[in-house]
């Protein structure tokens, strides 16, 4: 990226602004459609999944590409924004889709693996999002922090399974993300051994 001449803090701000703008503009477009509820729900869910999968790619790619290695800091921002999109997705589901009708929500969740997976993934993402800052790394010690963040390897596959199972038919998009995940896992396995 040709932004190396900018101070790191500025690069970081630019990135956050970009991802925030994407969320705002995407939501705006979703609102313009005929069904704002499902548009907002699907936009935040899908893009949240993209961002979370993207955050997993940094480590393997940093071994191959210098540019990625130099910009490893982006992983944190992308991961946190993935969480923000996921949180928006959950809030939209509770507020706009179900209007705080907890009984109805419970009825929908009951025996419904794909929603359970989504909720499970979200709760795994919370501690990671909360500890995505330097102070938390210091407080926990790097090793403990790293161990905690291994939860991504449980959370993100759950996100992709949730995305896949939410479709009416087998769609290529979640399948592609699943494939990417499998490649990341293969790399991880081979890298450790």
């Amino acid at each position: 990226m040709g932004l190396r001449w900018l101070p790191l803090a500025t690069q970081r701000h630019l990135m956050n602004t970009g991802l925030c703008l994407l969320l705002i503009l995407g939501s705006f477009e979703a609102i313009m459609g005929p069904d704002l509820v499902s548009n907002l729900r699907d936009f935040t869910g899908t893009y949240g999944a993209y961002l979370l999968v993207a955050s997993l790619l940094f480590t393997p790619l940093s071994h191959r590409f210098k540019w990625v290695k130099r910009n490893l800091w982006m992983r944190r921002n992308i991961g946190v924004w993935g969480f923000i999109y996921a949180a928006a997705h959950l809030v939209i589901w509770i507020v706009l889709e179900f209007y705080f009708d907890w009984a109805l929500m419970l009825d929908e969740i009951k025996g419904n693996l794909f929603i359970l997976l989504g909720i499970f993934a979200f709760f795994l993402l919370v501690p990671m999002a909360l500890t995505s800052n330097n102070r938390a790394v210091k407080f926990l010690s790097f090793r403990k922090w790293q161990l905690l963040h291994c939860l991504t390897y449980l959370a993100i596959p759950s996100v992709i399974a949730h995305h896949f199972m939410a479709q009416k038919t087998a769609e290529s998009e979640p399948l592609f993300m699943g494939l990417v995940l499998i490649l990341v896992f293969i790399w991880r396995y081979r890298h450790v051994h």
């Binding site: 069904d35 706009l96 209007y99 109805l104 929603i115």
Partner: peptide, 19 residues
Amino acid sequence: FSHPRWTQATERVIGELGR
């Protein structure tokens, strides 16, 4: 009778908020 993945007890009216 619910769909296996979602409830059919209520519906969202397209263009309105709420169910």
